[in-house]
Structures are given as C-alpha cells and as structure tokens.
Simulated assay, not measured.
Amino acid sequence: MLNDANLQAADMPDTEFTLTRNGFGRLVLTLGDGTAHEGVVPVRAFPIGAPDDGIGMMSTDGHELAWIPRLDRLPAPQRAMVEEELAAREFMPEIQRIVGVSTFATPSEWTVQTDRGQTTLVLRGEEDIRRLAGTTLLISDSHGIHYLIRDLMALDRASRKILDRFL
C-alpha cells in the first residue's frame, strides 16, 4: 500500500487533500476539512492534446472534488496511483502502421500495427475517421474502440496512401 501525502494544487491554494487506496484498491480522496470520498476517478481535461495538464478528481456522482493542474507536480506515490487509474480507464491504442485493408469501400476490415500489437478493426464509414488538431487522427471501429494516429506524417508512405483513400 502506498503512503499518504498532502497534495497542494497550485491554482487552488486553499485546497489540500490526501490520496490513498482503501482495502478494495479504490482511490480515496480526503479533503483538507477531513471529508473522505471513496471511489474517486481521475479524468483528464485534454487526454490527447495535453495529457499531463489538468486532471480532475471526480466523485462517484460526477462532481469535481479536486483539480490537479500538472500530473508531474504530484509526489511519486500519488502520481503512480493516478496514472494506474487513468491507464485502467483509458484504452486508446496508437496506430503505428496500416498493414492492409480488405477493401477501399466501407465497411472495411483494417489490419493495423499499434503500440499494443497487431490487431484488426472494422471501419464502418469514412465519418469514423476524424481529424483532430493538425495531423492527429482519431479512428473509431465498429466496437467503439478509438485508435489514435498522433502524427499522420510519421506513418510510412504505404499507410498514408491507404488513409488518403478514406479521407
């Protein structure tokens, strides 16, 4: 079990809190006034554009209880707890290469190499490929899993050529 520590949010000078785990492994946030909230969930404000900036600690009923302006400002044990919770909650593999597609019409089956290994996804339609900021793309498959292409220009030429057919 990780040790307790007082955390100070930089832009909320009056908000101190401790972060621990209960016997079931759920996060417990205790505010400066002694109020404890079990089962809190960290939520990134900008999960793709600025994943380490702005993390809200949310109650089970969806209310923000505390704000962490920068993840790297937390002491290591608490940062590890928050990162573990975020990893369990967020699943967004990054596509590194498009190995092949079944057809250039939709729906089509794509075989892709991701940072988590090779997989197959089904693209229902071109509208399931969304441009985010700059050269970042978000692809949603038929099961609702989101795949990230952080930088379209970092993909190999063959992968970019396949994507061009769908964009």
Rank of each mutant, 00 (worst) to 15 (best):
T103A: 15
A105P: 00
R130F: 02
L148W: 10
R131A: 07
A133F: 08
E126W: 03
R150S: 12
H143Q: 14
L123F: 10
V112F: 09
T111S: 14
L155A: 05
H146A: 10
T119W: 02
D115G: 13
W110K: 08
R150C: 01
L132P: 01
T111D: 07
G117V: 09
S140K: 12
L152G: 00
R124Q: 14
G125D: 15
D156V: 00
T136S: 08
D151E: 10
T106P: 06
G117D: 02
R124W: 02
Q96N: 12
S102D: 13
V112H: 09
H146Q: 13
T111Q: 15
I98R: 06
L148Q: 11
Q118G: 07
R130Q: 14
T119A: 14
F104C: 02
I95F: 05
V99F: 01
T114W: 09
P93D: 04
L132T: 05
Q113N: 08
S108L: 03
D151S: 11
T120A: 13
T135F: 05
T111C: 06
H143D: 14
R130C: 02
I145F: 06
T136I: 06
L138D: 03
Q96C: 04
H143C: 01
H143A: 14
R131T: 07
R124Y: 02
T119I: 07
S102C: 02
I98L: 13
L155D: 03
R130P: 00
T111N: 08
L132D: 06
Q113Y: 00
R116V: 06
I139Y: 03
L121G: 02
G144I: 10
Y147T: 05
I98D: 04
I98G: 03
P107I: 08
I129P: 03
R116G: 00
L123N: 07
E127N: 10
I149H: 04
M92V: 08
G125E: 15
S142G: 01
G100H: 03
F104R: 10
G117C: 10
F104E: 12
G134P: 01
Q96V: 04
L123E: 05
L152C: 00
I98W: 05
V101P: 00
M92A: 06
E127V: 10
M92P: 01
T111R: 15
E109S: 12
S142Q: 12
D156N: 05
G134D: 09
L123M: 12
P107G: 08
R150D: 10
D115C: 11
S142L: 05
